[in-house]
Design a protein around this nucleic acid. Sequence first.
RNA 1: GGCGACGUAGCCAAGUGGUAAGGCAAGGGUCUGCAAAACCCCGAUCGCCGGUUCAAAUCCGGCCGUCGCCUCCA
Length: 466
Amino acid sequence: MTLRIYNTLSREKEPFSTLQPGVVHMYVCGPTVYDKAHVGHAMSALVFDMVRRYLTFKGYRVIHAMNFTDVDDKIINRSHELSEDPFALAERYINEFLQLMQELGVLPATYYPRVSEVIPQIIAMVKGLQEEGFAYEVEGSVYFRVRRFPAYGKLSGRKMEDALSGTRITSSEGKEDINDFALWKAAKPGEPSWASPWGKGRPGWHIECSAMCYYYLGEQIDIHGGGNDLIFPHHENEIAQTEAFTGKLFARYWMHNGMLQLRGEKMSKSVGNLITIDAFLAEHEADVLRMIVLSSHYRKPLAFGEQVIADNERALARLRSALRPGRGQVQSGTAVNALHAQMDATRAGFEAAMDDDFNSAGALGNLFNLVKAINAARDAGVSSEILGTGQDMLRSLAGVLGLRLATSANDHEADAGPFIDLLLSLRQLLRGQKQYALADQLRDDLTRLGVVVEDSAAGSSWRWAA
RNA sequence: GGCGACGUAGCCAAGUGGUAAGGCAAGGGUCUGCAAAACCCCGAUCGCCGGUUCAAAUCCGGCCGUCGCCUCCA
């Protein structure tokens, strides 16, 4: 089966192939580290984590770079507010971000380049662009000459003339053209700056990604990703810089995730409808957020809110319900055949869905069908061994999506197991003597401690509440 | 104003030509001392209008609505 990916560049799904056989070079735009990351940032990270995991599942080796923008106006402003060194501040938020990614189960990138580490490379690139006439200097700043790059606008579908009709562009800062953008900014007092052929200064916003991508992954890459709010101007400008510099196609596939919405609006600092990742994780499991992201297509806007969180918490519990052991001994027959048939259907359906531009919602639907089949088989008395083959498949496919289905019982809780078993056998004696009031109280008490007790014809069982 | 995306049952959400996956919620049932869990049953003709076609949620056109970008943004 062939993977197809929607390419923002062509606005179509295209068959996926790589520049180098079996290897995917992927660059994803990371955050500007001037504040706590919110669940919208997490969505982007989770989407591309899914992409990466699936590519790996398909047999590719994925070389994945995600940058940190640690030189930026917002960071500088923040450092002045807090009287903290801008690099220390950035370092703090980078470490926090990496920690949160780990908690979310996002696989570490191969490279985490930072702007501050590639200043010489950035200068070399800007200089190269200037020598070729793609850039010019104005009072210590260097701008990209958009008119020298006719393909400008190919990603966003924008025409340069459109900018003129906009009402929000105010000053042109001595630029030749209103569409030109800064590659290098002359230093202002109180800002971090580096020596350059144009005097002291710092990089513009877009050149950093071009430079980091170029030096870490090469002049051409397979996948370039990020939020769809970056299409213009950020990615458009990246294309202009890199392709002007190399004379080659920059990225073959441009992937953009939709925005996470809270109360019908994009979650963003300016709107003030933020939920930080750590605030979310304080109340919910990491995989709940992943379920929310997976339950919708990555390119669509993602509805977020209490209702959605609660729904997905239960959906996750349902996925896990299939992992409970069987109690019967049935080894063959219609129940077993039905399970095997659904396993085949799920394996094929899962891959077909994911091959279609990472349709994770469709893939999840296939997983739920397997859940139903496993549970039905258990109810029909199918043995734990046979149930286990279906459960292994469920675990493995869920793992491709990055879901960890194991409940989070820690060592301390594991130690309690034998004692809970003891209490349950005691309760079984009470039930045998129809001492239901006492038995129910014991069950209620255990529930309060996070232990769910379930009675069935075959006896009682318990598990930690999700 | 320009560019782009979206509009499927109470909510979330797949499905891009042959009469609508899945999850959550609600209702009915099986099981059970009760409860819980699980299982079974139960719901939409796909924003509106027109067109193409033997056949459209799915293609084309128009309209309405929502959202994103055009300034920092995952």
